[in-house]
Amino acid sequence: MSQRIPITVRVNGVTYQREVEPRLLLSDFIRHDLGLTGTHVGCEHGVCGACTILFDGQPVRSCLLFAVQADGHNILTIEGLAPDPDHLHPIQEAFHDAHALQCGFCTPGFVMTLKPFLEENPDPSDEEIREAISGNLCRCTGYDHIVDAVHLAADKMKEASS
């Protein structure tokens, strides 16, 4: 049972080679083996969405994947989103501007969920936004300010790409 499996994973553009026990959750691997603690763990049963990362560009819950399954795959976490340490990604900027976070624990999950959503839906309606974030729980904000932030982020992203 103490099988250890070598894996090679690309996270935020950096290639990591590690040996892992098969049962190691991807969320624990990212947080504790790689030290990328911006991805948070809220429920470990796939409901809260705090641990959302981009797995080959798709938002998934990292608590429902094993690290071995990431072998050969490409992951983006909250630490890899901003273009450089002095600038935030437009979604991060918009969350700041609209007071879309309070304790900030769920925030990385929301931001990662929203990145591909806004790339595919540059001009979403309130309803589409609420549907898009319905798999992420926030206990502080009541979601209103997050919805505002998504509209703002959409504008910022359009501006940036025009």
């Binding site: 959302t52 938002p59 998934v60 429902l64």
Partner: peptide
């Protein structure tokens, strides 16, 4: 399909 879980669940 949209009735099943949430976007992250449906991605996987």
């Amino acid at each position: 399909m949209p009735n099943i879980g949430h976007p992250q669940i449906r991605n996987r």
